[in-house]
Design a binder for these strands. Structure first.
Length: 990
RNA sequence: GCCCCCAUGGCGAAAUCGGUAGACGCAUUCGACUUAAAAUCGAACGCUGCGGCGUGUGGGUUCGAGUCCCACUGGGGGCACCA
């Protein structure tokens, strides 16, 4: 191995006496050298069970314990990295290096999530093909990450845009399209509900085991192909529907619910989003709602993220109830959803959403004596409903949010019959009822619901209270009547009995019951009377899966002349993106709600129109021109690291079982999955929910044998930064700001080129002029110091401000470490082979024990503090013993690997320390000879005693009382608590 | 509005099970070395009237509270007409 010669720059900087000093220039030389050696020797290659992927020494896994540590892979934007980005990558690298030293077979790799909107927008802006700009960005990002010394197995890197990857993304889509969800079948983990191949559903239809929806009485084979396709579409896990979706004219695409902000605007670009009824692809994630909640209990994730997923899925238990609606001379069925079936006696009207199909059947005339406010002044219900639908559709989601609380709506001219009481209830349409939650229709109970109360107050509808406060509480119904609903579950049912129910003619009386009891009683009655049943609703919507974009995965779908979708056979995958004359999206005036989406892929007719043989001879088809959302690639990428070059499988079965199967690793739990997944909390309900969903489908279908993709999730904090504005509010260059004396209020003041500036706190960004890049760090300190600083800033999962001024502390630590082994003037190794003294042995072994605990718990900040203490001790010794500094170097190596490798090699080792066993503490030297025992009187420290750690409690009590005798003034203590050997707490007698 | 999380010196933080609050680092100050400076090494470093007081504020539980409980203040995050 080549000897490091100090660079000319380093020599000039440090003059003659410290030519071998560890400084920025030396660090860079060392880092280049070791990064090259690691690459050449395949130091970080992870070994597969079989195949071409062996470790650097040509070995397969051979039963070694696996550890799969993964980062949320980056989106290769053109902006490059700042020091805030790699915090998670550094954390996972430290963990990976530590686990390698524990002898585990560590899989750590990095891919690139390269489809998506920003890449496309950047390409449009620069006039280059997105593939060109994306690949440039990937190359740049790869260089920046490599320079940090991250221990990736680079053979396993890939980008989601590569045809070899797209092929399997499309293959997974095909499996999802070709599957349905059977709620009555157990899945492989034993709970109810399982995805099954669509062929098994067809078999049920064909055999008559299952009735064919909408075609009862007909044989499956008598249905036309288009009719069959329509039936199956209602079951497929990937399906086409015409339903209200988020249409964003400013971006020219539809968006998933998760991509729309609370303000009702697009998460990207912040454009208005409109509810439009459009024909789009969806994925039936709602079928998995319960399992996605339930299985959170099997994984080791931050409670915060689990809670966000539970809230997002929003499971609510209630009942659906069939109301009869008078239409003309007949009756139509209207199904409503309620969580409070106990309040059926208190419903005084019904509301359907503006998109509800019942509105197609409104009468031609208003009934007699309808108030003008109900009709909105329209001559007929048909006109009123049409007009209301128009205004509702034109509303952006943002308008809906702003109007929340302000109720609007119109009477439909229809009346529904309460199935229990037989009361005739006017049916309104109002946009506070949403078509895609529950059944899109509600029974309004103004006495028990704030929204219904508001609506009733505005339209002069009666209010009936059916629950009153518990007897014995201070509260009475009188406190509510005339001004508010009683919404609490804590109450007793009143006003709720009939002698003969309308639907069934039996008596029903729930008066006096508590709410929970009453819910159960009414639900049971509904089921017996066959007018309703207990149901579960989800806030979660099905996942809108198509986008009007060029830069995404094409669907493996073609349509025949009748518009029936067909899968493109697996053998024809991947379907690559065609060259089109213009790949930019067709965007519109952001406010133009009536515009229509147009997919860029439809611009290439040669690609769209295609002749294929799908098994029944060559026929003409046209391709699906929408593309998949950019979440598709990230839904399954973790599996591809295991087996990145496989052309036969998404992932080879044996490799999956070894790396991610639930039996492979005692720490991965019953769910199996990635051992450690590090990333930002911003993906809590997007990527992490979609990934779990896809994974569960693949699990149900038998392609993978762990029920969850990621066993342990860790969210790293955000690195924030100070920014400074001048008196005009313009940002000034943050690194040119100087701190001045505190002002009259003790607040610090800041100046920029002599002018006063204000400090604010937030993100790091170009526009805030406070960017610090990793390259700045390499130039001034080197990658090891940069790594050390980021790891020592504080707990990994908390956000904190970046402060370049503090980085020098890490540099000094590494310099002292270096100086403890190498003479700065001569470059000679100075360690001694003599045995360490007793004090050094104690400190060394205690440090090993403590640092091991910190590393296991992912607390590099406290590990570093303890390493510094040991190093500072060695600095004070006459000669530094080899037996002390070698374990120190090993413990430093996960955090500052380059300097550790260099010192290790200078100390005479000819192999990399990357796989050297982690130091073991010698138990004989762990613990203390003397401990300080504290004597407290009423919790205040009054004396300290140096005692043996295994002192007898009675002896300690005697010593303690003697030590504080003068404070007790001869009065015997009332109570003495002894926690030997650390605390004696005395309660004085007076 | 509902739900969740956080608050410790001048600064980043530590105290992991209720047991000496402030480890470690930055900044600052003093000293040694030096013609001088840098670097390095050593020391001091919560406040204080030297009695004490101190972990956002007020209460509580306990021999003992940064840690547990209640109420509040400030900051951050999630959801938001979900029947």
């Amino acid at each position: 191995m080549s000897e490091i010669e100090p660079s000319a720059q380093a020599q000039a900087h440090d003059a003659d006496q410290s030519a071998f000093r560890y400084n920025a220039a030396m660090a860079q030389t060392i880092e280049d050298k070791w990064q090259r050696i690691w690459d050449e020797q395949g130091t970080f290659w992870a070994a597969n069970v079989e195949g071409e992927l062996t470790d650097g020494e040509g070995r397969h896994a051979d039963g070694r314990r696996p550890f799969f540590a993964m980062d949320m892979f980056p989106y290769p934007s053109g902006k490059g990295l700042h020091v805030g980005h790699p915090l998670g990558y550094l954390a996972s690298d430290v963990v990976s290096r530590y686990h390698r030293m524990k002898g585990e077979n560590v899989l750590h790799a990095m891919g690139y999530d390269a489809f998506g909107l920003p890449a496309e927008q950047y390409a449009v802006k620069t006039g280059q093909h997105p593939r060109v700009t994306t690949e440039q960005n990937i190359a740049n990002m790869r260089r920046q990450l490599h320079r940090m010394g991250l221990s990736f197995d680079d053979r396993r890197s890939f980008a989601t845009i590569e045809p070899g990857y797209v092929r399997w993304t499309q293959w997974i889509f095909s499996r999802i399209f070709d599957a349905w969800y059977d709620p009555d079948k157990r899945n492989p983990s034993g709970s109810m509900g399982c995805a099954r191949p669509i062929g098994e559903l067809v078999e049920q239809f064909r055999s008559g085991e299952r009735a064919i929806d909408g075609h009862e009485g007909r044989a499956w084979d008598d249905l036309s192909e288009a009719e069959q396709a329509d039936v199956l579409n209602e079951y497929r896990l990937a399906y086409i529907s015409k339903s209200p979706v988020n249409w964003c004219p400013g971006l020219g695409t539809v968006l998933a619910n998760e991509e729309v902000t609370a303000e009702g605007r697009s998460e990207r670009g912040n454009y208005p989003v409109f509810q439009r009824e459009l024909r789009q692809w969806s994925m039936r994630i709602t079928a998995y709602g319960h399992r996605l909640i339930e299985d959170l209990d099997t994984i080791d994730w931050p409670e915060k993220v689990k809670l966000m997923q539970r809230n997002w899925i929003g499971e609510s238990h209630g009942a659906s109830v069939h109301f009869q609606v008078r239409v003309g001379d007949g009756m139509e069925d209207m199904e409503i959803y309620t969580t409070r079936p106990d309040t059926l006696f208190g419903t005084t009207f019904c509301v359907v959403s503006p998109e509800h199909p019942l509105l197609l059947q409104v009468p031609e005339r208003w009934p007699e004596g309808v108030p003008e406010q109900w009709t909105g002044g329209y001559a007929t219900p048909i006109e009123a409903v049409a007009a209301y639908r128009m205004t509702a559709e034109a509303k952006t989601a943002a308008d809906r949010v702003n109007d929340a609380g302000e109720k609007t709506g119109l009477f439909t001219g229809l009346y529904a019959v309460n199935p229990i009481t037989g009361a005739e209830l006017p049916v309104f349409t109002a946009d506070y009822v949403l078509m895609d939650y529950g059944t899109g229709a509600i029974m309004a109970v103004p006495g028990g619901d704030q929204r219904d109360y508001d609506f009733a107050a505005k339209y002069g509808l009666p209010v009936v209270y059916t629950v009153e406060p518990l007897p014995g509480s201070d509260d009475t119904l009188a406190n509510y009547e005339g001004n508010a609903p009683f919404v609490s579950h804590d109450g007793v049912v009143v006003n709720s009995s009939v002698d003969a129910t309308w639907a069934r003619g039996d008596a029903l009386d729930i008066n006096g019951m508590r709410v929970d009891e009453a819910i159960a009683a009414v639900t049971a009655w509904l089921e017996q009377a066959q007018v309703g049943r207990g149901t579960v609703s989800y806030r979660l919507r099905d996942w809108l899966f198509s986008r009007q974009r060029y830069w995404g995965e094409p669907f493996p779908i073609v349509y025949d002349d009748e518009g029936v979708p067909h899968l493109v056979p697996d053998s024809m995958l991947p379907i690559n993106l065609p060259e089109v004359p213009d790949y930019s999206p067709k965007t519109f005036d952001p406010e133009d709600a009536q515009s229509n989406p147009e997919a860029p892929l439809s611009r290439n007719e040669d690609w769209v129109e295609v002749t294929l043989d799908l098994g029944d001879g060559p026929k003409r088809y046209h391709r699906e021109t929408n593309t998949m959302p950019n979440w598709a690639g990230s839904c399954w990428y973790y599996m591809r690291y295991l087996d990145p070059h496989d052309t036969e499988h998404m992932v080879e079965r044996d490799e999956y079982d070894y790396w991610m199967g639930p039996d492979h690793n005692p720490t991965a739990g019953e769910s199996g999955g990635v051992d450690l997944y590090i990333g930002g909390v911003e993906h809590a309900v997007l990527h992490l929910l979609y990934s779990r969903f896809w994974h569960k489908i693949l699990f149900d279908l038998g392609y993978v044998d762990s029920s969850e993709p990621f066993h342990k999730l860790f969210n790293q904090g955000m690195i924030q930064a100070w920014a400074y504005t001048d008196d005009r509010g313009e940002y000034v260059q943050a690194d040119e700001v100087e701190e001045g004396a505190a002002d009259a209020f003790g607040e610090p003041t800041f100046t920029w080129h002599g002018r006063h500036v204000n400090r604010e706190f937030g993100k790091m960004g170009k526009s805030l002029k406070n960017i610090v890049t990793p390259d700045d760090m390499y130039d001034d300190y080197g990658a090891d110091t940069f790594r050390l600083y980021e790891m020592s800033m504080g707990p990994l999962d908390e956000s904190r401000p970046w402060n370049t001024r503090n980085v020098v502390g890490g540099m000094r630590f590494l310099q002292r470490l270096w100086r403890n082994a190498v003479d700065e003037t001569t470059g000679e190794v100075t360690v001694s082979d003599e045995a360490p003294d007793d004090k050094t042995l104690k400190l060394l072994n205690n440090t090993i024990a403590e640092v091991t605990v910190e590393m296991e718990a992912m607390r590099p900040n406290t590990a570093i503090a303890k390493l510094i203490v040991l190093n500072n001790h060695l600095t004070g010794l006459e000669r530094v013993p080899r037996a002390a500094i070698e374990p120190l170097i090993l413990m430093v190596s996960p955090i500052a690997p380059h300097i550790a490798e260099e010192l290790w090699s200078r100390l005479g080792h000819d192999r990399s320390l990357a796989h050297h066993p982690w130091p073991q503490a010698d138990e004989r030297y762990v613990g203390q000879d003397v401990v300080t025992a504290v004597v407290q009187i009423k919790g205040k420290v009054r004396a300290k005693l140096e005692v043996s750690p295994d002192i007898d409690p009675d002896e300690l009590e005697r010593m303690a009382l003697e030590a504080v005798a003068d404070r007790l003034g001869g009065v015997p203590p009332r109570k003495v608590i002894v926690k030997a050997p650390k605390i004696v707490s005395v309660v004085p007698g007076n």
